[in-house]
Design a protein around this nucleic acid. Structure first.
Lengths: 282, 282
DNA sequence: TGTACATCAGTGAACGCGCGTTCACTGATGTAC
DNA sequence: TGTACATCAGTGAACGCGCGTTCACTGATGTAC
């Protein structure tokens, strides 16, 4: 298991902690320090199973992930894996949680490196971190944001980790609201009543400083962000945006600039930063 | 095979025909009227194979699509299918082309039903048609816009049909430009040079009336559209937007309204149409 | 029009593979007296 | 501290399944003389 964000206590957004409380009523399994040799071994081997599964996922993709291959990779007999994982679906769940956590952590770290007052830069860093993590881990990304595995139903334990990225983005918005740095869209920022009430589930979990119209803007950008990353990763930009990494990064940066404006965060004067998209600061 | 848009001669966008010419250098297989009984039977059974595959796809999803199951469904022996389809990948390609064509046709029809001058309504009709087709055919949608099947590489023959939806959307933009009805975004509509040159592949296939900055806006909306539909279909809106069909439709309609503004098409005065999302006119 | 041959659709058996999951078992690790 | 029992990790074999693909074959449909 990756460490999953236990190390970012002070940086970790208030919002994420709130969401965590909401979602973590069950399934927290106290990971107290293991004592006996057996417990230690069990924890270690469980970790190795997940690591092997992740390797296989990265190499072959989710559809051809198999318990037998994982066992083979570890030099175990296939039935032995059942001491640690109750079924293939269970292993899938572990990987899904793991992927959400890895992405969430990457985004939190990237966004956390930017000065708190630089809201546009924080937003951009988060967006870029999503894309970069996805490019570096395409199969893990596809596992969580691609087509659902038929017959698999994600258990409750996935929804906490799944919300980490959104929590970061929303926290940026919250801070912008608090600092009064959000430019409301000139017109059309009134939201249809039906649309406002459609957002009830989200509003139940988000502070009231974020009014429906702002949430709507945020959701629009949220879906656009993942839509763009998915399109790039899934080959839909073929023959549309040039294939070179630089061109892809430039296209994405341009999207980020516009999303920033759409969501209402003031964009700094400099038109667009050139060169590597990997930089988060400056 | 679905009929694939041969019937919309006058409505079918100029742009789509242009793209078609660009893409159809090869792989057109003259479907002249079959003469002999053998040829007739062959065409018919090929159709039945695709229909059976589509049924299986709809029922089980792409990952568990198998030649043997298709054969079983048709009462044939599995090896007989190889008279019509050279491999499983070949069958997948047929289904992919079929799905793109079905979606493209649905969008063309919906958009074609709206009066030419009502640009915002045409745009909205196209967006809604995408969503409705996706909701009605989730597995076909996942096949073309979900995670790519590992190891499968889409052949050239898919890229023509894949561009039908974009062609409709771009045609709306073209008409808006021609009628001088596009409101340029107040600020930030200058595009970074690197981003402009990233769009070279798209610009090669699109009339010069569409400048880079406008294309960028169009792409942003394009990815947002499919990102939103994918999120809804793939379960990412769980706990965010209420689950009822009405709430989902209201959320989507609100997105459409904003995309319309983002892309620069003037939105009519009426704030939002209420009731069924299925209506395209009025 | 009639025969001889070529083409082709569909059969049935087989090859070789991988999968998830169960089950009785062995030996090592832990625990209670 | 030492023994008796319980717990648990890992083995190896098996069940039952489905898959893609090949191949020699049969019989029907088409074609050329």
């Amino acid at each position: 298991m990756r460490d999953g964000g236990g190390s970012c206590q002070e940086r970790c957004s208030r919002l994420w902690r709130t969401l965590r409380e909401v979602c973590d009523d069950e399934g927290v399994e106290k990971t107290s320090v293991p004592r006996t040799a057996r417990q230690r071994a069990r924890a270690e081997i469980t970790g190795e199973i997940i690591a092997a599964a992740r390797r296989q996922l990265a190499a072959e993709g989710a559809p051809s992930l198999s318990l037998r291959a994982v066992a083979r990779d570890l030099g175990m007999v296939s039935s032995a894996v059942y001491r640690y994982v109750s079924s293939r679906d269970d292993l899938l769940t572990l990987l899904i949680v793991d992927a959400y956590d890895a992405l969430g952590e990457a985004v939190e770290l990237a966004e956390g490196r930017v000065g708190r007052g630089r809201l546009a830069a924080r937003f951009a860093a988060a967006c870029r971190a999503v894309r970069e993590w996805a490019l570096a881990n395409p199969n893990e990304y596809a596992l969580i944001y691609g087509s659902p595995v038929p017959g698999y139903v994600a258990p409750e334990s996935t929804i906490g980790p799944a919300s980490r990225v959104s929590a970061v983005l929303l926290q940026v918005l919250l801070d912008a609201v608090a600092a009064d740095l959000l430019t409301p869209a000139a017109d059309g920022d009134a939201i249809a009543p039906a649309a406002a009430s459609a957002l009830v589930p989200l509003r139940a979990v988000v502070p009231p400083e974020l009014p429906p119209a702002l949430l709507q803007r945020a959701l629009l950008v949220w879906t656009a962000l993942f839509g763009t990353v998915s399109f790039e990763l899934f080959g839909q930009l073929h023959n549309v945006v040039a294939e070179t990494p630089a061109a892809r990064a430039a296209f994405f940066d341009e999207c980020v600039r516009r999303w920033t404006a759409i969501v209402g965060i003031a964009v700094p004067a400099a038109p667009a930063r050139r060169g590597q998209a990997g930089r988060t600061g400056r």
